[in-house]
């Protein structure tokens, strides 16, 4: 099996390497991917059309908004799937046998807890900045959401899973995750109700402040907040389910 795998890898690798000479040189601004009109249009027209200086966010949340909406749904589905795979309600049978030294709880370290208490608010404020500035500077809903979820993971590592669950029970996590998709889809349905295409935000200037172009920028911020809700909630949900074997009782 190993030899067979190695041979097939060598053949595939050789085929791919023999095609390398046809690829454009490194950093060539006139390569097909870089000179094609789609990317040229995004670079030159994005700000005029959406008043968002960050082209990546503009493409992500506006031009390819439909794709990103279902990307959020993919994360949500993954979170639900992990709960469905791992969840069990019987307490005793077939638990992962931990070594003896792990079963007795070590006393939580004061230095670690104090450091986390100092760090977590800063991490969360930074996450909110990354979300809110996603359309002006590097950042966005996915990145900020992951940072926000990581702050909860850090809290549950430093203290206990129970400490986080007191603040953020599982039902609330899943509600937040669903709320994110609801916000995103809500923007889409609002555009339909007002008479435009799905996720064509310019019509929202009728109910928002500003011009149609500014409405696209503001809607992108709203959509990114929705993405951040889902990503932050599901990141912590994935972590807590994996670490507790689906029982959500005690973690690492």
């Amino acid at each position: 099996m190993k030899i067979l795998g190695l041979i097939s890898i060598c053949i595939t690798g050789w085929l791919l390497l023999s095609a390398v000479s046809d690829f454009p040189e490194w950093g060539d601004p006139h390569s097909p991917a870089n000179s094609y009109q789609v990317s040229q249009h995004y670079i030159t027209k994005t700000f005029a059309e959406t008043s968002v200086p960050n082209m990546v966010t503009a493409v992500l949340a506006d031009y390819r908004g439909y794709d990103t909406m279902f990307e959020t749904v993919v994360i949500f589905t993954a979170g639900i799937a992990i709960i469905g795979i791992l969840r069990r309600y019987d307490s005793s049978s077939n638990t992962i046998n931990k070594p003896e030294s792990f079963t007795e709880k070590p006393k939580e370290d004061l230095i670690i807890r104090t450091n986390c208490r100092l760090l977590i608010p800063i991490i969360q404020i930074f996450a909110l900045y990354v979300i809110a500035h996603g359309h002006l500077s590097p950042g966005g809903g996915f990145q900020g959401g992951v940072i926000f979820g990581a702050s909860f993971i850090l809290l549950s590592l430093a203290h206990d899973l129970k400490t986080v669950q007191k603040k953020l029970p599982e039902g609330r996590i899943l509600t937040l995750a669903g709320t994110g998709i609801l916000i995103y889809a809500g923007f889409g349905f609002a555009t339909i109700v007002l008479g435009n295409n799905f996720l064509d935000y310019s019509i929202l200037s009728k109910i928002m402040l500003g011009t149609p172009i500014e409405a696209r920028s503001h809607s992108m911020l709203g959509v990114e907040i929705g993405v951040a809700f889902t990503v932050a909630a599901i990141m912590f949900s994935i972590y807590s389910n994996l670490v507790s074997g689906g029982k959500m009782k005690e973690g690492l």
Binding site: P29, I43, V56
Partner: peptide
């Protein structure tokens, strides 16, 4: 356009990271 990196692969890979 030559002053800015191509944004399209960045967007596609952002979604690929999520998947």
């Amino acid at each position: 356009p030559d002053d800015f990196a191509n944004p399209l692969p960045h967007v596609l890979m952002l979604t690929a990271i999520v998947v």
